[in-house]
């Protein structure tokens, strides 16, 4: 029939949305590998404590500071605890802190971004200027500042990392909102008498969703790194816990004598952050190709 124009840019992949997404994502080989690595981490976070070969907290003074061997894959620490088991158990803590802080930041940032972008004018200016203030601080310094106010502890690490995630989410979502709000179907929805909150949450938000997902993945890596850094500085997880950052912190005294103590926690943090960034890149190419630089 009257197929005069075929505009594809706002056509969603609705029928078999998931299938067409998978078909495109499967071609990003490294992103798929990263995805599986991340899945493995999630599984370890869920069932880790019940599959580890050694109790991560039980000291064994007969095997202190041993290098990697078949018995202890990643060696033992200064109390003779199995580093491999501790890393696996620590997954839950490190991922949990990262995910919860990014989610918290994403939710708050998205709401601010939607409001800022949709209402514009002084609301937009106020929110964006406040974001600029937060952007002016280096991330980790800002987090340290917040913890200085709230006091150390894992919960406060989550809050601090969430707070420095808010401005970046707000800005990204605002940009997308500005674009979406000019679309004709938003005006059409206004013309039937829809309220602002309905337009924002039922019509604008779904359009920004793919951008948020991509950004979420990208920021997760940074958040895990930040949480580990804070724990390393002794501001987060208690030094005796099996958090990756805390483990690095404890073992830095032994760097010269027992290299494996620093190497393995560092390696797993590195791999986690790298895989999340690669996965984020892949997701962006598929879901939100326009935002690529």
């Amino acid at each position: 029939m009257a197929e005069i124009v075929t505009k594809t840019d706002y056509m969603p992949k609705s029928r078999g949305k998931l299938r067409s997404f998978c078909a495109a994502f499967i071609h990003k080989k490294t992103a798929v590998a990263s995805f599986f690595f991340f899945c493995l981490l999630i599984i370890l976070a869920l069932i880790g404590p019940s599959i580890v070969p050694y109790n991560p907290q039980t000291p064994d003074y007969n095997h202190v500071l041993q290098g990697p061997s078949w018995l202890h894959l990643a060696g033992t620490d200064e109390y003779g605890r199995d580093v491999f088991s501790r890393l696996i158990v620590g997954t839950r803590l490190s991922l949990g802190v990262g995910i919860s802080s990014v989610l918290l930041g994403a939710v708050a940032g998205t709401i601010l971004g939607l409001i800022s972008g949709y209402f514009g004018k002084w609301v937009d200016k106020t929110i964006m200027r406040i974001c600029d203030v937060f952007f002016a601080f280096p991330d980790i310094l800002l987090a340290i500042g917040i913890i200085a106010i709230l006091g150390p502890g894992l919960q406060n690490v989550v809050i601090a990392v969430a707070i420095f995630n808010i401005p970046s989410f707000a800005r990204v979502v605002r940009g997308k909102t500005l674009e979406v709000k000019e679309m004709l179907f938003i005006e059409a929805t206004r013309s039937i008498g829809a309220t602002k909150s309905r337009i924002i949450f039922k019509h604008v938000f779904p359009e920004t969703f793919s951008t948020i997902i991509v950004y979420l993945t990208m920021n997760l890596g940074t958040a895990i790194l930040a949480a580990a850094s804070l724990s390393f500085l002794g501001l987060g997880a208690s030094p005796s816990s099996s958090d990756w950052g805390a483990m690095l912190s404890m073992s830095r005294d032994y760097m010269g004598t027992a290299f494996h103590l620093v190497f393995f926690p560092g390696l797993i943090i590195f791999l986690t952050v790298l895989s999340l960034n690669i996965m984020g890149d892949g997701l962006r190419d598929v879901l939100d190709p326009k935002s690529k630089d």
Partner: peptide, 25 residues
């Protein structure tokens, strides 16, 4: 704006571009 929302009920619009005036989602 609030009053306008109720005025719009007996006064509806049809738009030019049928490709853009319906929500894609």
């Amino acid at each position: 704006e609030k009053a306008w929302r109720s005025y719009r009920k007996p006064m509806q619009m049809i738009f030019q571009d049928p490709y853009a005036s319906l929500s894609p989602r």
